[in-house]
């Protein structure tokens, strides 16, 4: 593996495994958070907007039914 004799050597990082891999793990976490968070926020936004639309549509339908009933009673 490039500059290392074996995969085990690569993992052990010349005895600095704890430092090197924890630094890279934190870095990976930062990358992950910066992608995952906005994607989740986007998903949530669409869910909320669609739900709001549904609620509005239902309310409008209820209103319409109510009015139709009133009109029906009147005639």
């Amino acid at each position: 593996m490039g500059s290392f004799a074996s995969f085990a050597d690569f993992i052990s990082m010349g005895g600095y495994a704890v430092y090197v891999w924890s630094a890279y793990a934190f870095f990976a976490l930062v990358l992950l958070v910066n992608i995952w968070q906005p994607l989740m926020a986007r998903k949530k936004y669409f869910r909320q907007q669609l739900k709001r639309e549904q609620v509005q549509a239902e309310r409008a339908r209820a209103q319409q039914e109510h009015e139709e009933m009133r009109n029906g009673n009147a005639t």
């Binding site: 990082m13 010349g14 005895g15 600095y16 430092y19 090197v20 890279y24």
Partner: peptide, 8 residues
């Protein structure tokens, strides 16, 4: 000097 550690 720092060996593999400088990969950070």
């Amino acid at each position: 000097q720092m060996g593999e550690n400088y990969r950070i």
